[in-house]
């Protein structure tokens, strides 16, 4: 277990692709990763809510992550995956273009979103509120997502 003992400065990230960019979320929020399955459309929902899927008998809402954070739409491919995410008793599936790997990043290498945007004075602009920070792993940039914003836990989705 010694070598797995992540020092308090390190975080483990599930990295995945949306378009060409690499994104990540804390592994602690990831329940499992599934292949794309049947998704049932639910009427009267925002367009980024793809619908609901069957996860071993329970009904799971599915979010199209690209639509959610304002990236252009694209066809689903063989590499498309659903990451099952759990945050504060809410479990949802998130559609991503591909899951790459689990990364360990030293928190010293994470630039928080405040630092990035403070100079531009648009810290709360629509596209940036979903971003917690950017991890830099030997010049490989991973955008870390703010899951609670994405799930609208702050009361946006109604």
């Amino acid at each position: 277990m010694e070598q797995h003992e992540v020092s308090s400065n390190e975080v483990q990230i599930v990295a995945f692709k949306l378009k060409r960019e690499e994104y990540g979320m804390s592994i602690l929020n990831v329940e499992e990763i599934k292949r794309l399955t049947d998704i049932t459309r639910v009427p009267f929902t925002p367009d980024f809510i793809k619908g609901v899927m069957n996860l071993r008998g329970s009904v799971l809402p599915v979010i199209d992550l690209k639509k959610r954070i304002g990236l252009p739409d694209a066809e689903y491919t063989d590499a498309t995956r659903i990451i099952v995410v759990k945050l504060e008793e809410i479990t949802v599936g998130m559609i991503v273009d591909a899951v790459t790997e689990v990364l360990t990043i030293d928190s010293a290498h994470i630039t928080s979103s405040k630092q990035i945007t403070s100079t531009e004075n648009d810290a709360h602009s629509e596209s940036n509120k979903f971003i917690n920070g950017i991890g830099n792993l030997n010049n490989r940039l991973v955008i870390l997502l703010n899951l609670s914003e994405i799930l609208g836990l702050n009361g946006e989705i109604k």
Partner: peptide, 27 residues
């Protein structure tokens, strides 16, 4: 009958969902 969950609780016209025999979900 299964609930749609907290995230989708605002949708009035759908009272829930159910899993059909083939694993598909019907509202």
């Amino acid at each position: 009958i299964k609930t749609l969950g907290k995230l989708l609780s605002g949708i009035k016209v759908i009272s829930g969902a159910t899993v059909l025999g083939n694993g598909q979900i019907a509202l």
